[in-house]
Design a protein around this nucleic acid. Structure first.
Length: 652
DNA sequence: CATTCTTTAAGT
DNA sequence: ACTTAATC
């Protein structure tokens, strides 16, 4: 009850007063002007912003069902050791839930298909669907789901022109439809493009009235404005019924935008289903957290539209712990502090009080409770920044000698996954490696170290680095009676290697089998420097500061790698005769290739795929690499596939 | 209602 | 570098 007098006035209207409910959500029908329509960007405060969250339903189960070519209406579950990690919707009809054990589930449904997740057996280089996987000896592989997830996101991209997509988790993506929707809006209502000559406030004049009714797509649900008019347990509530009950309603321009987004979303979900066979559910609303909540309104192969006018009725009875970021400690703290469970319960807490108790987070919470969320849909790099292989140990390790077995298992998987990632994006490399263990129930320890940078991934390399960490850990000793119940190895800071570094590698790989060029010999060799075609060759002086360089037509920057660095990397050689031209050709070709690869990787990381002009379903889901390098050495740079990969073992 | 495995971000 | 928290 501290006085709020000594605090500056809060921006909230009803501050300190008894709340008038209509003012809790006071921005639901903002004025939209021509200026809004013309705005080149549509940020979090724009009144016509439209965001969707689309997630795959029972994704792992759906993946296995598709992989096995099973009828999607057959009940199917995915098991991981003694538990279920995915239950498809037909199986849920039998009352099976993720908390059930596989054997319990089978009791509920005689014909239930139980698929165990793929596992690595000891020493295996790829995961398999083993007959009888054993938690004591095998290691789970979630790779199938990771790969399928990429296909889903790529399909979204191909079927959407010009929107932003953020992959939020393995089976969820946020989509910002604002720009494509605005473009379509102008196509359908071209009169919005012209500010009337007699408009009183020019470009700041409010838009004319929207059409008197909105065509909501058939295949989705409208969250009702007044849920009390309906039986909340009625899962069959249709859009028609909602529209019928809201006959008198005057739609807004934002409603029109939502309906357009719904069409686009529907098209994207259809593409995913037709191409990949995955069912999705989407939520569509004015911002991310509402889109996410709306997605959970009705599930399985559908989409739910949350109009601004429906926000209060939807949000007030909502347990606030369902809101993203309020599911954990913060949510619990709020519940305890204010003895509240629903959003409605917290609306009477004013901003000052909230700030006193929750400091920084208060404004975010305060706004979210009122349906406001300014967070943006931001494209995340397509490449993961970290990679973890971990394992709970059913028989805890009780001696240091048992460590290496599991470390080998975990590092093998990591090496394979890194190698796989590099097939798509050559040059990816982790900055650090770390080893993490749990002793007993809650004693955790971790060690990390910089990861070295040879150019090929081998299991032995990763194993060796992890073993160093393990040995360090062992040296520090264990609590009395060592009991390791969990172990994990991970890569962090996985990024595209530095350009110069990569250029050198490419360069060296281009000439792998030639006699070694010593520094002395290199001094006597002639190499052209700036421009291969124009500048005459001149003597190499290893100590000079000149570079191989060219100007990139795309970014207009001069790209170079110091000649010195290349020379010192040794192995640069050839017969004395045409060595000069060969060297400069190799170096420049490598550098150019490297630079193209750099752009390629950047595009890939930002997921800037070339814009598809028509919706002609192109078969390939992944971007094309730039023109392949013509290698003088005639040697494949990277071994393809796991078989070859293993041959690399033992080499530096 | 608890469990295995992931990934990311942020704090100390 | 190492820990904690949050999400699926």
């Amino acid at each position: 009850m501290a006085d709020s007098v000594d605090r500056p006035a809060s921006p909230s209207k009803g501050k300190g007063k008894l709340k008038d409910f209509s003012s809790e959500f006071d921005d639901l029908d903002p004025v939209v002007t021509y200026r809004h329509i013309f705005s080149p960007t549509i940020g979090p405060k724009h009144p016509l912003r439209v965001v969707a969250l689309c997630d795959c339903n029972a994704f792992y189960a759906n993946c296995e069902q598709v992989r096995l070519g099973i009828d999607p209406e057959k009940p199917l579950v995915v098991a991981q050791w003694g538990m279920l990690i995915a239950v498809n919707y037909p199986a849920r009809e039998f009352g099976i839930s993720r908390m059930d054990k596989p054997h319990e589930a089978v009791k509920r449904c005689k014909d239930l298909i139980v698929v165990h997740v793929a596992t690595y057996a000891e020493g295996e280089l790829e995961p398999k669907y083993h007959e009888k996987p054993d938690a004591k000896t095998h290691k789970i592989s979630l790779d199938l789901y990771r790969r399928e997830c990429i296909k889903v996101v790529n399909t979204y991209k191909e079927s959407l022109i010009g929107g932003e997509i953020e992959k939020a988790s393995i089976d969820e993506s946020f989509i910002d439809f604002s720009i494509p929707v605005r473009d379509e809006l102008l196509r359908r209502f071209p009169h919005l493009k012209d500010v009337p000559l007699d408009a009183p406030q020019g470009i700041d004049t409010p838009l004319p009235s929207p059409p008197s009714s909105v065509e909501w797509p058939e295949n989705g649900n409208l969250v009702p404005i007044d849920p009390s008019k309906f039986d909340p347990s009625d899962k069959t509530l249709t859009t028609e019924q909602v529209i019928e009950a809201e006959k008198d309603l005057i739609p807004t321009w934002h409603d029109v935008c939502l309906s357009i987004a719904a069409e686009l979303m529907s098209r994207m979900r259809k593409a995913v289903f037709e191409r990949l066979g995955y069912y999705t559910t989407a939520g569509i609303g004015r911002n991310k957290f509402l889109a996410k909540l709306a997605a959970s309104y009705r599930k399985r192969n559908t989409q739910n539209i949350l109009r601004n006018s429906a926000i209060p009725g939807f949000l007030k009875p909502m347990p606030f712990q369902k809101i993203r970021n309020l599911g954990g400690k913060l949510g619990k703290a709020l519940a305890e502090e204010f003895d509240a469970a629903t959003v409605g319960d917290l609306l009477s807490v004013d901003l000052d009080e909230m700030q006193r108790k929750f400091g920084e987070s208060a404004i975010w919470v305060y706004e979210v409770l009122r349906g406001i969320d300014r967070s943006e849909v931001k494209e995340k790099p397509a490449i993961n920044k970290s990679m973890l292989a971990s394992k709970n140990l059913p028989n805890p390790l009780s001696s240091t000698a048992e460590g290496p077995h599991w470390i080998k298992m975990l590092t093998s998987e990591l090496a394979i996954r890194l190698h796989e990632a590099r097939e798509l994006t050559p040059g990816l490399w982790p900055k650090t490696i770390s080893l993490h263990i749990c002793e007993g129930w809650s004693d955790r320890k971790s060690k990390q170290a910089p990861f070295p940078s040879p150019r090929t991934v081998t299991i032995d390399l990763v194993l060796g680095e992890a073993m160093k960490l393990w040995n360090e850990m062992c040296k520090e000793g264990w609590r009395k009676g060592m009991k390791i119940t969990h172990m994990g190895v991970s890569f962090h800071g996985i990024t595209w290697a530095e350009e110069g570094q990569r250029a050198i590698e490419t360069f060296l790989m281009a000439a792998p089998s030639r006699p070694v060029l010593t520094k002395d010999r290199a001094r006597s060799v002639s190499v052209g420097v700036r421009d291969t075609s124009v500048e005459p060759a001149r003597d190499v002086d290893i100590d000079d500061d000149s570079s191989y360089s060219f100007t990139c037509p795309r970014c207009k920057k001069e790209v170079s790698v110091p000649r010195k660095t290349l020379a010192e990397c040794r192995n640069v050689s050839g017969e004395n005769g045409d060595l000069a031209s060969e060297l400069q050709g190799n170096a420049l070709a490598a550098l150019k290739q490297e630079h193209e690869d750099f752009h390629f990787a950047q595009d890939l990381m930002r997921e800037n795929r070339p814009i598809i002009t028509n919706n002609t379903a192109s078969g390939s889901g992944s971007p094309k690499r730039p023109v392949k390098k013509q290698k003088k050495g005639g040697q494949a740079s990277e071994p393809a596939g796991i078989a070859k990969f293993f041959i690399q073992k033992g080499k530096t």
